[in-house]
């Protein structure tokens, strides 16, 4: 018998799934004090071509010497060739990423996980509810819906942030306020003099919307504490348990269902999620 080398063994045609691929930072936008929007472009054309994702999926950002961190993709799948990641400076990897300059190289693995059921959602009204950084994965869905707007009915976006300074993508949302094809509702917990919109938690916005439960899909992402209350509101509007989708944050480390860190109930957030329907989430212990 001979030695077997790891690079020789057949691995579903894509090579070593743990190996990050170099990607160049092609743009960095400061969004708030803590968040920046990074645009990344995989350097290897073949790898770039193979990186086809769905809204709600995530990628592992790698900075050698520091580690990896799971980040949801914010750009629309319809825009191929680059991805956008909205990153909060909160740990070692994200901290190191925040120090990078445009043109620098980082590692990238993905796309990973199960995203929103975009095809299934077509032909329906959409109600998106985001809290804080939860707008990041929903931004991908919003942009994708935008690119195929004619496929959807009424689209309502509710987004709550702590204060006006923490509203992400505020510039874009300010422009969208006047659009008729998106019903955009922003709210902040604490107001200041730059804010003339509603003040209060995101669930308060539900009083202002009519929902047709037969043809509305919900999409939720926010801090763990938010889900329960948003779901309550959606259920009050008689939305079906299997038409409400939500993205969970867990400790996705390997991203491919091996390392065990992102267990939620009997599932793994990294391969079974991070997007789950409410019906699925109800059956996941410790999920909500």
């Amino acid at each position: 018998m001979n030695d077997i080398r790891v690079d020789e063994c057949a691995c579903d045609g894509v090579g070593n799934a743990y190996r990050p691929w170099p990607a160049r930072i092609t743009s960095i936008q400061d969004l708030t004090e803590k968040e920046k929007l990074f645009e990344l472009r995989l350097i290897d054309p073949e790898v770039r071509e193979a990186f086809k994702f769905h809204a709600g999926q995530f990628a592992e950002i790698s900075i050698f010497g520091v580690g990896e961190a799971p980040i949801s993709i914010s750009s629309a799948p319809s825009k191929q060739g680059f991805i956008e990641l909205c990153v909060r400076n909160t740990g070692d990897v994200t901290g190191a990423l925040h120090k990078k300059q445009c043109g620098d190289i980082v590692g990238l693995r993905g796309p990973l996980g199960r995203g929103f059921p975009f095809e299934q959602m077509k032909g329906n009204d959409i109600l998106l509810v985001a809290g804080g950084l939860g707008i990041a994965p929903l931004k991908s869905l919003i942009n994708h819906i935008h690119d195929e707007r004619h496929e959807f009915g009424k689209v309502t976006i509710m987004y709550g942030a702590k204060n006006p300074g923490e509203v992400l993508f505020r510039h874009q949302f300010d422009m969208w306020k006047h659009r008729e094809d998106f019903d955009l509702m922003l709210t902040v917990d604490e107001s200041d003099d730059t804010w003339d919109g509603p003040v209060g938690v995101v669930t308060k916005l539900f009083d202002q919307v009519d929902v047709d439960p037969d043809c509305t899909y919900g999409a939720i992402c926010g801090p763990p504490v938010m889900y329960k209350y948003v779901i309550e509101e959606m259920r009050k509007k008689n939305m079906d348990v299997d038409k409400i989708y939500m993205s969970f944050e867990r400790r996705m480390k390997c991203g491919i269902g091996k390392c065990g860190h992102c267990g939620v109930g009997h599932q793994y957030a990294c391969i079974d999620g991070p997007v789950f329907s409410y019906w699925e989430a109800m059956n996941l212990q410790e999920a909500i």
Partner: peptide
């Protein structure tokens, strides 16, 4: 060890492992 790397260009320099019989 899963892989060796080079920090400057975020490059994987080696991710092979030799498994002997």
């Amino acid at each position: 060890t899963m892989m060796h790397f080079n920090c400057a260009d975020e490059e994987v320099t080696d991710d092979t492992v030799v498994a002997s019989p």
